[in-house]
Amino acid sequence: RAFLYEVCIPMSPHITIYKWSVPMMMSITHRGTGVGLSGAISAFAVAALVLPENYPYYLDLIHSLSVGPFLIGLAKFGIAFPVSYHTYNGIRHLCWDIGKGFKIPEVYRTGYTVIGLSIVTSIALTFL
């Protein structure tokens, strides 16, 4: 019975009682992009090891699908955004590690800067 009580009732305040903020969302997104990128890289590596054909074969297979420029652009943006966001936010975290940028206005300013740079960089990479 005690186990069920501990599982059903949180021992500390749950995330739902907090007001969502930009730094909170950016922290969650940073962790999510890290996990997603690690999973994607691992899946690509495993696929490269176990699939019978070589890389040009699969690249030609993708080209033969004729999915259209909009979907290709969307896919490029979908790959570029997590990479650029995680990189820029990682640099922001490195600045925090050396003790810079902890004041609340700086946290928000650097957060919005990371979001803006990520979007601009992702759009630029999409058009390459």
Score class of each variant (00 low, 15 high):
Arg1Met: 13
Arg1Tyr: 08
Ala2Gln: 13
Leu4Cys: 10
Glu6Trp: 09
Val7Thr: 12
Ile9Glu: 05
Met11Ser: 13
Met11Trp: 07
Pro13Ala: 09
Pro13Leu: 09
His14Phe: 11
His14Gln: 07
His14Trp: 11
Ile15Phe: 14
Ile15Ala: 14
Thr16Glu: 10
Thr16Pro: 00
Ile17Val: 15
Ile17Gln: 13
Tyr18Asn: 07
Lys19Ala: 11
Trp20Ile: 13
Ser21Ile: 09
Val22Trp: 04
Pro23Ser: 08
Pro23Met: 09
Met26Gly: 00
Ile28Met: 13
Ile28Cys: 08
Thr29Leu: 15
Thr29Pro: 01
Arg31Trp: 07
Arg31Asn: 09
Arg31His: 12
Thr33Gly: 09
Gly34Leu: 06
Val35Tyr: 14
Gly36Phe: 15
Gly36His: 04
Gly36Val: 00
Gly36Glu: 04
Gly36Lys: 03
Leu37Trp: 03
Leu37Thr: 01
Leu37Asn: 05
Ser38His: 03
Gly39Trp: 03
Gly39Pro: 02
Gly39Ser: 08
Ala40Pro: 04
Ala45Met: 15
Ala45Leu: 15
Ala45Cys: 14
Val46His: 07
Ala47Cys: 06
Leu49Gly: 13
Val50Trp: 08
Val50His: 03
Leu51His: 08
Glu53Gly: 01
Asn54Tyr: 07
Asn54Val: 12
Pro56Trp: 08
Pro56Cys: 07
Tyr57Asp: 07
Tyr58Phe: 15
Leu59Val: 15
Leu61Met: 15
Ile62Ala: 15
Ile62Leu: 15
Ile62Ser: 11
Ile62Pro: 00
Ser64Gln: 09
Ser64Asn: 11
Ser66Ile: 03
Gly68Pro: 07
Gly68Asp: 07
Pro69Ile: 14
Phe70Glu: 11
Phe70Ala: 14
Phe70Arg: 12
Leu71Ser: 08
Leu71Asn: 09
Ile72Met: 08
Ile72Trp: 03
Ile72Phe: 01
Ile72Leu: 13
Gly73His: 11
Gly73Val: 03
Leu74Phe: 14
Ile79Pro: 00
Ser84Arg: 01
Ser84Ile: 09
Tyr85Arg: 03
Tyr85Glu: 03
His86Val: 00
Thr87Cys: 08
Thr87Trp: 05
Thr87Gly: 02
Tyr88Trp: 09
Tyr88Asp: 00
Asn89Lys: 04
Asn89Val: 00
Asn89Gly: 01
Gly90Trp: 06
Ile91Gln: 01
Ile91Phe: 12
Arg92Leu: 02
His93Thr: 05
His93Pro: 00
His93Met: 12
Cys95Gln: 09
Cys95Pro: 00
Asp97Trp: 02
Ile98Gly: 02
Ile98Thr: 14
Ile98Tyr: 13
Gly99Met: 11
Gly99Asn: 06
Ile104Glu: 14
Val107Phe: 03
Val107Pro: 01
Tyr108Val: 10
Arg109Leu: 14
Arg109Thr: 06
Tyr112Arg: 02
Thr113Arg: 12
Thr113Tyr: 05
Val114Asp: 02
Val114Asn: 02
Ile115Val: 15
Gly116Phe: 12
Gly116Met: 06
Gly116Asn: 02
Leu117Tyr: 05
Leu117Cys: 12
Leu117Phe: 13
Ile119Cys: 06
Ile119Asn: 03
Ile123Lys: 05
Ile123Phe: 12
Ala124Asp: 02
Leu125Gly: 01
Thr126Cys: 08
Thr126Asn: 07
Phe127Met: 12
Phe127Ser: 04
